[in-house]
Design a protein around this nucleic acid. Structure first.
Length: 426
DNA sequence: TCTGGGGTCCTAGGACCC
DNA sequence: TCTGGGGTCCTAGGACCC
């Protein structure tokens, strides 16, 4: 029997999370902005109807949002991450095999569900998730991940389908593939779309019927896989165990331009601190850190500069103090005065698992002490909030002119004691 | 004033090796 | 015309995703 995969995702997920905790947001337009309040990354149907596009810069839609009374929020990742975890708990009651694909999307294995019962299960799943978490969702089902994604798109954009779509049946599938534009396919972006149109394709069905060999030449093996997946032959398997991450980065735009070395060092030290937290949470380490900063291409009339350097550490580590030392050394190495820098970051690749590495072999006292110190640091920051305790070498204290903007963030309703909503009045 | 952040995968081409 | 023929490893850059 061929497999059946479902893709479930939250509708306007970040906006829906905000709506769960504020009933006044229901049925009014809502958008959520990216980091630094840069651009719109989630919009409700009402906001889309006003013409607000995905990725549109905040300063361009600010006036529209004021006149149309759009409710605007900064990103609240603590809230969205927690709501995502709750939704996935519900998914696991419906399928033993779940792949968490992104913060708002999961693939579920429905192979063992009888074909005639899959839509019924999908409706039950949607209703349960909505009842238990407050998040509205859509479900797409197909014999491959690519077709499940496409089915999900159809479920979301065709009101007649009422939020569920099953493309398991050959005839049903052909019907829809002929009527769907090729750019809706998962993995076909702007560049591939242009190439496929040049090959005479218009609909998804046209792409499905291409000869895979010329497609491989034009779109690499990725394009060839898409064709097989659209034909119902799976090339992408369900990954129920999260792979160990390969790289890790912390990069941020500044809320105002940075022009002096001391501020840049502070900012990069803060990013290195955050990097250490992320690495320790997954017990990973790195023996080199890339540091970069650059000006903004939107700053026309000002000189442009982009600089980066790789700093090597004596051994793989996740120790914040070592990471800060390396990162600030990198800043000094490539620093040049006379530019208005807009963004900086620290990046690592080739992460290694730390627990079982040299640590056990060469455990010196210093390292033991460092590990205990970092454990204590993480425990404090878990308890009192990120940034409650920071190393003195991070250079905090003066005002954080470089820090990211989050002017319109909602409370951390579910992850912060002081922010838990109160029902009724005293 | 003002334009996000963090990932993955794939390929081409250079360096180097036997 | 043509100057050996593979291998591996690394890096930069493109493309795509959410």
């Amino acid at each position: 029997m061929s497999q059946a995969i479902a893709l479930i995702d939250g509708n306007s997920f970040y906006c829906s999370c905000e709506r769960v905790f504020d009933v006044k947001l229901r049925s009014v337009p809502v958008i959520v902005l990216s980091n630094n309040d840069g651009c719109a990354i989630a919009r409700t149907a009402e906001a889309k109807a006003l013409g607000i596009r995905m990725g549109e810069p905040w300063f361009k839609i600010r006036e529209l949002c004021r006149t149309e009374r759009v409710r605007v929020f900064s990103s609240n990742y603590a809230l969205y991450g927690d709501m995502s975890a709750r939704a996935n708990e519900v998914y696991r009651r419906f399928s033993p095999r779940v792949e968490i694909y992104s913060i708002d999307e999961s693939f579920l294995d429905l192979t063992d569900v009888a074909p005639g019962r899959r839509l019924e299960l999908a409706r039950d799943l949607r209703a349960t998730v909505h009842r238990w978490t407050g998040i509205p969702t859509c479900v797409g089902i197909g014999p491959t991940k690519t077709l499940a994604k496409l089915a999900n798109h159809l479920a979301k954009t065709n009101p007649a389908l009422a939020g569920v779509c099953d493309l398991s049946d050959d005839n049903e599938r052909s019907h829809w593939l002929c009527r769907t534009a090729l750019e809706e396919v998962w993995g076909i972006g702007r560049a591939s779309q242009a190439k496929l149109r040049a090959l005479g394709c218009d609909s998804v069905a046209d792409v499905r019927d291409l000869d895979p060999r010329p497609v491989r030449r034009a779109l690499t093996v990725v394009g060839e896989r898409i064709i097989h997946e659209l034909r119902g032959r799976a090339c992408l398997s369900l990954e129920t165990v999260a792979a160990t991450r390969k790289g890790c980065a912390v990069t941020r735009s500044f809320s105002s331009r940075v022009e002096d070395l001391a501020t840049m060092e502070q900012a990069v030290a803060a990013h290195a601190t955050r990097l250490g937290e992320k690495l320790r949470r997954e017990r990973l380490g790195t023996d080199h850190v890339t540091v970069f900063f650059h000006t903004s291409e939107h700053d026309t009339g000002n000189p442009q500069r982009s600089a980066s350097t790789v700093v090597t550490l004596p051994e793989a580590t996740s120790d914040t103090l070592a990471l800060i030392k390396a990162a600030t050394a990198g800043v000094r190495r490539i620093w040049k005065t006379g530019y208005r820098y807009s963004k900086a970051g620290v990046i690592t690749v080739d992460l290694v698992p730390l627990a079982a590495s040299q640590r056990a072999l060469f455990d010196g006292l210093d390292r033991e002490r460092g590990g205990a110190l970092m454990d204590a640091l993480d425990a404090c920051n878990r308890r009192w909030g990120r940034g409650a305790v920071v190393p003195g070498t991070a250079g905090f204290g003066s005002q954080r002119t470089w820090s990211t903007r989050f002017d319109m963030r909602s409370p951390r309703y579910t992850t912060r004691i002081a922010d838990i909503p109160v029902v009724g009045s005293a």
